[in-house]
Design a protein around this nucleic acid. Sequence first.
DNA 1: CACGCAATTGCAAAACTGTGCAATTCTTTG
DNA 2: CAAAGAATTGCACAGTTTTGCAATTGCGTG
Lengths: 337, 337
Amino acid sequence: MSQKPFVSAQEVAERAGVSRSAVSRTFTPGASVSPETRRKVVEAAEVLGYHVNHLARGLMLNESGIVCLIVSEMGTPYRSSLIRAVTQQLQDAGKIAMLVNTDRSDGSVDLALRQAIRYRADASIILSGMPDKSLTQLCLKNGQRLVLINRDDDQEGPLRINLDDAAAAGRLVTAFLRAGCRRLAFANSEAGTPSLMAREHGFVAAAKAMGLEVVVERYGPTGYESGRVLAQRLLTLSERPDAVFCATDLIACGFMDAARHQFSISIPDQLCVAGFDDIEQAAWSSYQVTTFAQPVEAIAREAVTWLGSDDAEDPAARNHSVRLNADLVWRSSIRGG
Amino acid sequence: MSQKPFVSAQEVAERAGVSRSAVSRTFTPGASVSPETRRKVVEAAEVLGYHVNHLARGLMLNESGIVCLIVSEMGTPYRSSLIRAVTQQLQDAGKIAMLVNTDRSDGSVDLALRQAIRYRADASIILSGMPDKSLTQLCLKNGQRLVLINRDDDQEGPLRINLDDAAAAGRLVTAFLRAGCRRLAFANSEAGTPSLMAREHGFVAAAKAMGLEVVVERYGPTGYESGRVLAQRLLTLSERPDAVFCATDLIACGFMDAARHQFSISIPDQLCVAGFDDIEQAAWSSYQVTTFAQPVEAIAREAVTWLGSDDAEDPAARNHSVRLNADLVWRSSIRGG
DNA sequence: CACGCAATTGCAAAACTGTGCAATTCTTTG
DNA sequence: CAAAGAATTGCACAGTTTTGCAATTGCGTG
């Protein structure tokens, strides 16, 4: 392992005939270096293949430039698109993303957060699960920023980015009614994520306000297969629903496939379906599912700009929460429009 | 920015009433510490919330534990599943993944690799694009390992993991023939990736060996939309193909959707279709596309175990190349079976 | 030419860890 | 109880960077 180490500023300094400091200053924007020495340093660095050591730099400045992304099921379309957006914006802001996988097990997020602390990440962005409160407090106490995306939590300190899941779900009820639907159903997974539950409750509440009951069914993980199972359960009821809101586009895809191929139901003629997330597949012509768009770019922008801003000191900004809208994307899985 | 820094080993040592070395040794597996001092140190560390600083550790050991993943279009199903697999296996091996986005622009991969050098990554895994040769040489010279996945390159030094794209594509010809197809076509993107071209050439060559001509069409990026366009081009030919091999499952999905919904062609009765990658959507009942499975777990395992092994010194292992099989996954987009 | 001012440069300290080496303590055996 | 051997502990250094402070250089002006 102990290979000959990377080339250091010392070596560059010697080759350029200047001091270490000059090398450092050359690569520090805004530092005072004469054009002549800068030229010599850059030249020597080029020849030797010198790159500033960000480990040492982070040690010195107490600012590593690393942002830790904590996420489970990253192979899923919505998650991966969010990872892509965040990673890109971090890069544009001169930072770099560290990726940590979590699974459903309990201590998993805690372990991930500990990893973030070990590498002295400037911030952690949590896309899945919730860490223990004492651990988040530790992060904050040590000056590490925290961003919680779609995690309902009222701690002070972290930036909390949330969607108007409930409100969006509510708007869908009127859309279903306008399409002439009366027997509403909600197809959810058993994950119990805050956003999933908000969609469910928002939908049920809005329906109730209109004097309608909603059949709620929950099954398995949040994915395509669960959608199929949910279809089998909901479409074999004696009072078969004529409108189903699926908690997720993946669920919606599974639901629609089962409805069409197994029950020979025509969508949207006999059954209206809606989803959430606006994943790429929702736009595929086999599905064309009406859905709510996750504003991934906006989410990423909010997170990254907050990380870049210096309002950690500002006590007013300590309790920062952002609520974004999920716009309805109208496609042909609901009648009318 | 200059918050009160994280708690250091020094503080733990003072609280535990031992020397800083004792703290270090407590967290170094295999070091000599008495059970008594270990207890005191662990206790103090627990109370103070101490975590070893991996930046300083990496500086000292010349081994950061960081592995850089360089990848473009990470929102795509195949890419994201590979990222998931690699990230997970790296974690299991005690390392951590750094994620760098690249776009199509030319210097993009070089920039990413420079970032890997700055953070003194132990290794870089390149999933997309090819860096400049001088830069890979610089990486290797500095003891950074390099893994190229599905990049055809014959440099010595990096581990090269490749699929038998051409051979797999060849096997497909006989499957098409057995289904009674005679007018073969290949639907490719314009990306020109080594693996995509290998599939194309392997398919064309095997067909030629059977005395059959293949209509090759290329268009746009490697995605669903391109599949639709390719369908419009291939299915309006005077001699309409009765078997199409799509370079990617995403292309296949777009192709099938256009074929069915736009041209009212029945699959597999009037047209056989195959894809590549075995993404999750390929198994969805709207597609059920016969395809070749990317062995993502095996790829990840090969990469990570090689990174863990100490055969960098071994000159015989310097030139290490792995070739994996892509197994045919039979579904109902091809007749018979 | 001498002087003052601005710009540049170098020294040294600080950040945090792992580890070789010597010194100390503990255990065991005669 | 003495002594040898083993285990443990502490000191000090190395590794790479940034930056405050002091010293030096360069330049314009009286």
